[in-house]
């Protein structure tokens, strides 16, 4: 696989900006996903209730 980034100062700036933005997006998306995690406990509760 070839590098998409040039070996220049400008390339380093592009690499940094893209990496930083994607990092924020990734972690923000992970955070949003974790907000749904309490639902896992509710699913368990519903299944048990149905079982009973």
């Amino acid at each position: 696989m070839e590098s998409m980034i040039n070996d220049t100062v400008q390339g380093a700036i592009y690499l940094s900006v893209i990496d930083m933005i994607l990092l924020i997006v990734f972690l923000y998306a992970m955070g949003q996903l974790f907000k749904l995690f309490p639902l896992v406990n509710k699913i368990k509760f519903t299944l048990r209730k149905k079982g009973n």
Partner: peptide, 8 residues
């Protein structure tokens, strides 16, 4: 989860 972004 709202603090996750601090890792960035």
């Amino acid at each position: 989860p709202s603090l996750l972004v601090l890792g960035a």
